[in-house]
Simulated scan of single mutants.
Amino acid sequence: MGDPVEFLRGCALGTRVTVRRSIDGGWSDALGYLRELTDTACVIETRRRGLVTVPLDAVTNAIRVPEPPPRRR
C-alpha cells in the first residue's frame, strides 16, 4: 500500500474519499468529498458532520470510494 498523504495529493478536488486518522485511543474516519488540501491538512465535506479538517500528519489511510447509490423515494 502506498503513502496515503501522497494519494491525497494526487486526487483532484471533489474526489470522494475515506480518510482514516489516528486519535487518542483509536481512529476516526471521514467519508466525503475532498474540498481542500494544504501542506498540513485536508478538508473533507461529509454528509453528517459538514466540513472536517484532518491534519495530514495524523492520516493513516486514504482511499477513493465510489459515488453513493441514488436515494430512494
Results as ranks from 00 to 15, higher is better:
M1V: 13
M1G: 15
M1W: 05
M1F: 11
M1P: 13
M1D: 13
G2N: 14
G2H: 11
G2M: 07
G2W: 08
D3A: 08
D3Y: 12
D3H: 14
P4M: 06
P4V: 09
P4S: 07
E6A: 15
E6S: 14
E6W: 13
F7Q: 01
F7I: 12
L8I: 07
L8P: 06
L8C: 05
R9C: 06
C11N: 07
A12C: 05
A12I: 03
A12N: 02
G14H: 06
G14Q: 05
G14E: 07
R16Y: 04
T18E: 14
T18G: 03
V19F: 09
V19T: 09
R20E: 13
R20H: 05
R20F: 08
R21H: 07
S22V: 14
S22P: 00
I23Q: 15
I23P: 12
I23K: 15
D24M: 10
D24R: 13
G25V: 04
G25L: 02
G26E: 05
W27G: 10
W27F: 15
D29K: 03
D29F: 06
A30I: 07
A30D: 03
A30F: 03
A30W: 04
L31W: 00
L31N: 09
G32I: 04
G32L: 02
Y33K: 00
Y33Q: 06
Y33A: 11
L34H: 14
R35I: 08
R35C: 15
R35P: 02
R35K: 14
E36T: 08
E36C: 01
L37T: 12
L37D: 04
T38I: 08
T38R: 13
D39I: 00
D39Y: 05
D39C: 12
T40F: 11
A41Q: 09
A41T: 08
A41M: 03
V43C: 14
V43E: 01
V43A: 00
E45Q: 15
T46Q: 12
T46F: 08
R47E: 14
R49S: 15
R49W: 05
G50I: 10
G50Y: 12
L51Q: 13
V52M: 12
V52Y: 09
T53Y: 04
T53Q: 15
V54C: 03
P55F: 03
P55D: 10
P55N: 07
P55L: 12
L56H: 11
L56C: 13
L56R: 09
D57K: 01
D57R: 02
D57H: 15
A58S: 14
V59A: 10
N61F: 03
N61K: 04
A62S: 11
I63F: 10
P66A: 10
E67Y: 00
P68K: 02
P68H: 03
P70G: 06
R71D: 00
R71P: 01
R71H: 00
R72K: 05
R72H: 11
R72N: 05
R72W: 08
R73C: 00
